[in-house]
Amino acid sequence: MKTVSRIFLIGWLVLISQAGFAAIDTYEFRDELTRERFQALSAELRCPKCQNQNIADSNSPIAKDLRDELYRMLDSGASDSAIVDFMVTRYGEFVLYRPRVSSQTYLLWYAPVGLLVIGIAVVIALTRRKKSADKSVEKTGLSAKEQQRLDALLKQNQDKDA
């Protein structure tokens, strides 16, 4: 009984393991470096049809075509930048998960740095202002204006009492 259930379990595992292999093609690479370049590039190129997947993950026919093309180009000795250019001239900047620095992408690349600088400037300005404000309210914790107002109110009250 135990062996029967074990066989079923193994059979089941073999069945479900197919899903994990769905997007894996059998490419023969000439060396380890080419394999690594293939993996890096296919992870960085976006599938134009399925948009939120790279061409390594996607099962769509176009992703398969692009993987084949990538393999072909690597096999014929194309450089990484030649391959990226090839894809961009056909599918646009859109296929790059890591967009290139150009006048169109300046905002994308530099806005975070710009915002950080603005944030730091604001924090510095606020702490400076707080410090200078602290100096004027040394003893009573009131500013000069508030002190004047307090004096006036106290005087009013005294006048009423009298």
Partner: peptide, 12 residues
């Protein structure tokens, strides 16, 4: 083979 399609940027 979809070679012309690839050069045209066809994806669907």
């Amino acid at each position: 083979q979809g070679r012309l399609g690839l050069n045209l940027g066809v994806y669907g």
